[in-house]
Design a protein around this nucleic acid. Sequence first.
DNA 1: TCTGGGGTCCTAGGACCC
DNA 2: TCTGGGGTCCTAGGACCC
Length: 441
Amino acid sequence: MKTQTLMFGGSSLTLFMQPINNRIIALVDCNSFYVSCERLFRPDLKRKPVVVLSNNDGCIISRSTEAKQVGIKMGEPYFKAKPLIDKYKVSVFSSNYELYGDMSRRVMKILKNFSPDIEFYSIDEAFLDLTNIKMDNVQEYILHIRKVILQWTGIPVSIGAANTKTLAKIANHVAKKNKLGVEEFITKDKNEVDEILKTFPVQEVWGIGRQLSKFFNNNNFYNVHQLKYVDNYWVRKNSSVVVLKTIHELNGICCFPLNFQYVARKNCCVSRSFGKTITDLNDLKEAVVMHCMTAAERIRSEGLIVKSVYIFIKTSRFKKDYVSRVQKVDLPIATNNTLELVNLCAKALENIYIKGYFYSKAGVIFSDLKPKDHYEKNLFSDQNLNLDHLMKVIDQTNSKFGRGAISVAAARLNNNSKMNRRYSSKIDTSFIKLAPTVRAY
DNA sequence: TCTGGGGTCCTAGGACCC
DNA sequence: TCTGGGGTCCTAGGACCC
């Protein structure tokens, strides 16, 4: 791997870069993924406006093309979009993550057949390294991938190919707009790609969000082509190293390599907004304990233990007198034991709870996660063996009989902290009882 | 009335040490 | 009266992503 060192006065910056290369990186992105999943079981909604709501039926998080066309915005609160939804008879679904998770696994499994070098980037996106794949024609190959995914899962995808991740993202944007659903910058010449970049505003670049695009606009950079040829020293002086890397990527120099390995996460956050606001300490405790149990189960399933825990409660940030209370607790010995963690969270909650506020959200964050064998054995390790065994039994029972089959007494979920999920399709393709019924006459 | 959840990385600033 | 300088580590907050 080559390096480049930039000098700024007395300081220097070394970038580890792969040279301009013949790498082929394809970004596969499922179109309106959650909507597409819901449509699988509602073929009558093809070519109709459809949206999927976030947890608690709060915001719009997925829109069909038709829903976009009638002016429904991404991230908009449901109640604000309601007039448009009624006017255009838009179908609405509460989010159903069991279904989306299962469909995602199916898509990813198929993609892996097309290249073993794959980075699972998000629930609906993956980067494929096609550099070493034997093929006659990139365009035909990615068209073929698209066709197979659609045929085997029913999910439409867009594919963009280029020699860096950032350019593959842009190619993917182009693919989303064209009929084929694929776009490649590999065989196009530099001028042709530059012409395309001129048509993209800076905020469409991966890594350039709202604040950075404001910054660039203020400095008279409006499209990606201008961004590509910006002076590197000026960027480093006035912005961050990540932006500099992004600009290198636009120039075909790989600064964000693909991650093929599973990387253990560093944090685990479980939090929910309540269906209705909560004032009572015991109601809050039930919610916090539930979230703590979920988080503990999650990290156990990944073979991790936690060293510090954050517990937080907050009122609605859209109301006056917004209150956010948080406590961090460091554990003397890292653990993934539910009983221990639940006690700790309940105590911490008592410390931060103030009477008289209308709380709208509670959660826990397990941070500083480490693999189970990271810390050396200590005096108490052997005593923990029984508890480890107990946790294993609980996890196995819950996985067999459904979540919450065994739980701690404090976690009884009352109606106060329940989530709104009014428009759920209730389909779970990984759970036979919730599979849809088909009648043949 | 009703505004999601879960991640990552970077940076600035404070505490602390020699 | 004058009150160093440079390093590390930690943390909170910001920005970004899906």
